[in-house]
C-alpha cells in the first residue's frame, strides 16, 4: 500500500501541499497519514473522491488527532492511531497540537520530549531521561519513571497521574519535587498535585478527571 503523508502543520497547510502530493501517487491502495491535522468527515470524503478520480483507493487513515480518527471510522475507512508521533519526518522535540488533549501511544525513551499546549495523555511508559510536559494535566497510562511537568505555564491546578508514579522528578507549575524512593504499590493509580505550595502524591480519585 502506498503511503501519503500530510505535511507537518508547523510547515505548511495540508491543502496547499495537496496538489504536489497527489501528483506523486500511482494508482492503487493508499494509506493516509494525517499527522496532527483535524480532517472532518466532509474533507476526508472529498479527498477520497479526488483520489478515486485518479484511480487511487483510500483504504487506511492514521492520525494523532482522535477526531480525525473518528471521522475516518465513520466513513468506513480503517483508522489507526499513529504511534510514531515523534517520527522521523517531524521535529523530535516538542511536537505540539492546538487541540485540548494530545494523545500519544508508545514509550518515551531517554532523550525524548513530548509536550502539549493542553492536557496530555500517553499510552506507554516514560523512561528515565525522558520528559513529558503540558500546560494542563499530564496523564500516563503506564509507568512514569522520567520527568513530568504539569502546568508548565503556571497552572497550579494541574495534576500528574500515572499507573505507576516513580519519576526522577515532578514539576507542577513552578514547584519541583524529587520522585519518591520507595517501591510503588502495584495496582494503585497515583496522582501528584499541589497542596499549599507543595507537591503531594496520593491515590488518584476513582472518577479520575471527569467533571473538572
Amino acid at each position: 500500500m502506498q503511503g501519503l503523508e500530510l505535511p507537518n502543520h508547523h510547515v505548511q497547510h495540508w491543502r496547499d501541499a495537496l496538489p504536489v502530493l497527489l501528483n506523486q501517487l500511482q494508482p492503487g491502495a493508499i494509506s493516509l497519514d494525517c499527522g496532527a491535522w483535524l480532517l472532518t468527515c466532509g474533507e476526508l470524503n472529498e479527498l477520497r473522491k479526488t483520489m478515486a478520480g485518479m484511480g487511487c483507493n483510500l483504504l487506511e487513515v492514521s492520525a494523532t488527532n482522535p477526531e480525525t480518527l473518528v471521522c475516518a471510522s465513520a466513513l468506513g475507512l480503517s483508522a489507526r492511531l499513529s504511534s510514531d508521533l515523534i517520527g522521523s519526518q517531524k521535529p523530535r522535540d516538542a511536537p505540539t497540537t492546538d487541540s485540548e488533549l494530545l494523545f500519544h501511544q508508545g514509550t518515551l525513551r531517554s532523550g525524548d520530549h513530548l509536550q502539549s499546549d493542553g492536557d496530555i495523555l500517553l499510552f506507554g511508559d516514560v523512561n528515565p531521561g525522558a520528559l513529558i510536559s503540558a500546560d494542563g494535566d499530564v496523564m500516563v497510562w503506564g509507568r512514569l519513571r522520567g520527568t513530568a511537568h504539569a502546568g508548565q505555564h503556571g497552572e497550579k491546578q494541574a495534576r500528574i497521574i500515572a499507573l505507576q508514579l516513580r519519576p526522577v522528578q515532578l514539576r507542577i507549575a513552578d514547584v519541583v519535587a524529587r520522585g519518591p524512593e520507595d517501591q510503588p504499590q502495584t495496582g494503585l493509580v497515583e496522582q501528584a498535585r499541589l497542596q499549599d505550595g507543595e507537591i503531594v502524591i496520593e491515590p488518584a480519585p476513582a472518577q479520575g478527571f471527569i467533571g473538572r
Binding site: I86, S88, G111, P128, G129
Partner: peptide, 14 residues
C-alpha cells in the same frame, strides 16, 4: 542503560 535507551528510541524511529 540510559544511553542505550536513547539509541533504541532512535533505532525504532528509523
Amino acid at each position: 542503560v540510559r544511553d542505550a535507551d536513547r539509541v533504541i528510541g532512535l533505532l525504532n524511529i528509523q
